[in-house]
Simulated assay, not measured.
Amino acid sequence: MREVIARHGLSASKALGQNFLFDEQLLNRIAAIPGSLDGKAVLEVGPGPGGLTRALLRVGARVTAIEMDRRCLPALAELGEAFPGQLKVVEGDALALDHGALMGEPFAVLSNLPYNVGTALFTRWLSGANWPPQWTSLTLMFQLEVAQRIVAQPGSGAYGRLAVLAQWRSSAKLAMKVHRSAFTPPPKVMSAIVHVVPGAMPEGVSPAVLERVTEAAFGQRRKMLRQSLKGVQGAIEALDSLGIDPTRRAETLSVADFVAVARILGSQVA
């Protein structure tokens, strides 16, 4: 990969949130996290010069890679020639594209996400009204702090909206920590791989209602629920009916508690 970068005169763009990975052993470990990908469709966002892409192609994945940095396209084209029929490169902004339409079939997502769009893409994949989603798993690189927020448990300082979003109808685990020295250039912080698999959709719960409740509750997380949720019609009454003390704070409620509140509020609207 260092030879590829040198040959094409590439360097990581700070503006695009790029940090390149060269360690083939590490990249192979990342590609193995979801299990066998032989013959399976994979979506990769921000492949850059193609380090992870190469690892995915080696295990037989059919990769669709979305890249908005035109400088990287020639290096990716070389990869496509080396693995005929396995790689499709789409130039564009992943936030502006319809991933389901682009893939046209069930797909796994594996990506060393650009830091500046990682959380936005993650929440988009998790927020869809249609469930189960078209994606079969998400294996994503984040800053360690963000990864810890995704897998956080109630009562911890990292627990918040992101944890509820990731866990209310999916299972999320921190699969691997990655030292900053593994990247070029090294970021200022540690990174981690999060692996998410969709689960069963709780009955009678609207994603939009759950989002509204968690946004209000964690938007004022230092306040008691009776204060933070007072703007959500029926929320305090829902807490009372569930036996949840309104003097508690948001971080003390479990994911199941938030789901139960959203279910009651949804039934009232219906």
Results as ranks from 00 to 15, higher is better:
156 S>E: 15
180 R>L: 12
87 L>P: 02
94 A>P: 08
47 P>A: 10
140 L>P: 07
126 L>I: 08
172 A>M: 08
261 V>C: 01
79 L>Y: 00
58 R>V: 01
63 V>M: 06
120 A>H: 09
183 F>V: 09
188 K>G: 04
162 L>N: 02
210 L>D: 02
85 G>A: 08
197 V>R: 12
50 G>L: 02
42 V>S: 05
253 L>P: 00
199 G>T: 00
15 A>Y: 08
123 T>E: 13
220 Q>C: 08
164 V>F: 02
71 R>I: 07
24 E>H: 09
95 L>V: 11
209 V>N: 04
56 L>P: 05
265 L>E: 03
114 P>K: 06
194 V>W: 12
233 Q>P: 07
88 K>F: 07
96 A>G: 10
217 A>W: 01
182 A>K: 12
40 K>P: 03
170 S>N: 12
231 G>F: 08
179 H>S: 15
116 N>G: 10
212 R>L: 07
93 D>A: 14
238 A>S: 11
61 A>Y: 07
41 A>W: 03
119 T>C: 14
131 W>I: 02
201 M>L: 10
169 R>Q: 14
212 R>Q: 14
38 D>H: 14
133 P>V: 07
7 R>Q: 15
150 I>K: 12
228 S>P: 09
181 S>Q: 15
191 S>Y: 00
264 I>L: 15
133 P>C: 06
228 S>D: 04
234 G>D: 11
106 P>S: 10
177 K>C: 08
227 Q>N: 11
69 D>I: 14
181 S>M: 08
210 L>R: 07
40 K>E: 14
155 G>E: 08
157 G>W: 04
135 W>G: 00
174 L>P: 03
124 R>M: 06
91 E>W: 14
130 N>M: 05
102 L>Y: 10
58 R>Q: 06
13 S>V: 12
65 A>K: 02
211 E>G: 12
183 F>W: 12
72 C>G: 04
100 G>M: 07
5 I>T: 14
202 P>T: 04
139 T>Y: 09
120 A>R: 14
238 A>G: 13
56 L>Y: 05
201 M>T: 05
162 L>C: 05
79 L>M: 07
180 R>N: 10
258 F>N: 00
175 A>R: 11
54 R>T: 15
179 H>L: 09
217 A>F: 01
246 P>T: 13
89 V>C: 13
180 R>Q: 14
83 F>L: 08
172 A>D: 03
66 I>Q: 05
196 V>P: 03
258 F>R: 01
208 A>E: 15
168 W>R: 01
27 L>I: 09
58 R>S: 02
17 G>V: 06
237 E>P: 06
161 R>L: 03
252 T>R: 03
121 L>E: 02
215 E>Q: 15
198 P>N: 03
214 T>I: 11
66 I>T: 10
222 R>P: 01
151 V>D: 01
204 G>A: 09
206 S>M: 08
123 T>S: 11
